[in-house]
């Protein structure tokens, strides 16, 4: 019970701080195994529940890749993502198929970055959070920890 309470506290304390998006401590092992090989395991707060549901329903053609998982694993990962999903009104529309990088929140947070950086060979794709946020996998998106020198203020 104590740990539940702690988790509840964590969950309610952190979303207020925009640069810290820790992975919920109860992330199932399957989430890391299945969702962190091709890109970082994106924190569930980065999309709203309905968008995670849409994304999980289309894993066989996942942005041109095959990311299928068996049914039981899919349910486990889906339930976890939806339970810890982000605030729908703050994130805004994510498009279809849903992309974190198309949410209004992402666009707003990155609107000062010149367009050429999204195509920079060091970055390759806006979805490559780690190219600029070296600790993205651990949920750190602080503007003080940006690895591309020209983008530091």
């Amino acid at each position: 019970m104590k740990s539940l309470l702690f988790l509840a506290l964590l969950g309610s304390a952190f979303p207020a701080l925009a640069d810290r998006l820790p992975m919920p401590a109860n992330a199932p092992a399957s989430f890391t195994t299945e969702c962190s090989s091709c890109h970082i395991a994106y924190q569930p707060a980065l999309l709203k529940a309905a968008d995670w549901r849409k994304l999980m329903a289309g894993l066989s053609d996942h942005f041109g890749s095959d990311a299928t998982v068996d049914q039981k694993t899919g349910q486990e990962i889906g339930a976890f993502l939806e339970r810890h999903a982000g605030n729908a009104s703050r994130l805004g529309n994510a498009g279809n198929p849903p992309r974190i990088t198309q949410t209004s929140r992402f666009i707003r947070k990155h609107d000062e970055i010149p367009a050429k950086y999204w195509r920079d060979p060091r970055v390759k794709s806006a979805a490559n959070c780690e190219a600029c946020h070296p600790d993205a996998a651990r949920g750190s998106y602080s503007e003080h920890d940006i690895s591309i020198r020209e983008l530091r203020e």
């Binding site: 091709c38 890109h39 970082i40 942005f63 890749s65 390759k124 979805a127 490559n128 780690e130």
Partner: peptide
């Protein structure tokens, strides 16, 4: 390095 996402492999 993943050809699409840039992630280290």
């Amino acid at each position: 390095e993943h050809a699409v996402t840039g992630k280290t492999i």
